[in-house]
Amino acid sequence: MARITYIEHNGTRHEVEVKPGMTVMEGARDNGIPGIDADCGGACACSTCHVYVDPAWVDQLPPKDPMEEDMLDFAYQPDPERSRLTCQLKVTEALDGLVVQMPERQI
């Protein structure tokens, strides 16, 4: 299991255990974390699961593929370095301790 901390825009923190093989988005959904809508169900066809990755984690994550880069263009206030779509982040034991913050609002 990997511990992932989801921080709502208002600062509310949710630290949960997520099984390896799931996505960070599925971890939020299955644990009732508000603020990650995932309207497309994880198909990388919207940007409602957009988060900002804690700066300490940016270089530890796999690179964004072109489809994720394209969808981030539709995210609310994307950050070129820290923005990621949680549906594209597969949980592994190496992600234990990952911290993500939700933007003020989703589209």
Rank of each mutant, 00 (worst) to 15 (best):
C87E: 03
E17G: 10
L95G: 02
L98A: 04
P103T: 05
L85W: 03
E68W: 12
S47W: 10
L98N: 12
E26I: 00
Q101S: 12
Y52K: 04
V91L: 05
D96H: 15
Y52R: 06
T92P: 03
A2T: 00
S83Y: 04
R84E: 09
P63F: 06
V91Y: 00
E104L: 12
P80T: 15
E93W: 04
C49I: 06
Q77D: 13
M1Y: 10
Q101F: 11
D73Y: 13
K19S: 04
A28Y: 03
T92A: 00
T48G: 10
K90M: 05
D96K: 01
V51Q: 01
P80I: 12
Y76E: 06
L98Q: 09
D73V: 15
A94E: 13
G42C: 12
G21T: 02
V51M: 05
Y76M: 13
H50E: 00
C49H: 06
G32K: 05
P34D: 04
V18M: 06
P34M: 03
D65M: 10
L61V: 08
I7N: 02
D59S: 13
T23V: 00
L95M: 05
D96T: 03
E17K: 14
L61A: 02
V51C: 14
V58D: 09
G35M: 15
A56T: 14
D79L: 09
T23K: 00
A45H: 10
C49P: 11
A43V: 09
G41V: 13
G11R: 03
E68V: 02
V53I: 12
D54L: 09
R84C: 04
E26Y: 02
A56M: 13
D73L: 15
E68A: 11
H14V: 01
M25Y: 02
C44G: 12
Q88S: 15
I36R: 08
D73K: 14
G11T: 03
D79F: 11
E8G: 04
P80N: 10
G11L: 05
T48M: 04
L89Y: 07
A56L: 13
H9I: 08
L98T: 07
V99N: 00
T12K: 12
G21I: 10
C46L: 07
G21S: 08
M1N: 12
V99E: 00
Y6R: 03
T12S: 14
P55C: 11
Q77S: 14
D37P: 06
Q106L: 08
A28E: 04
T5K: 04
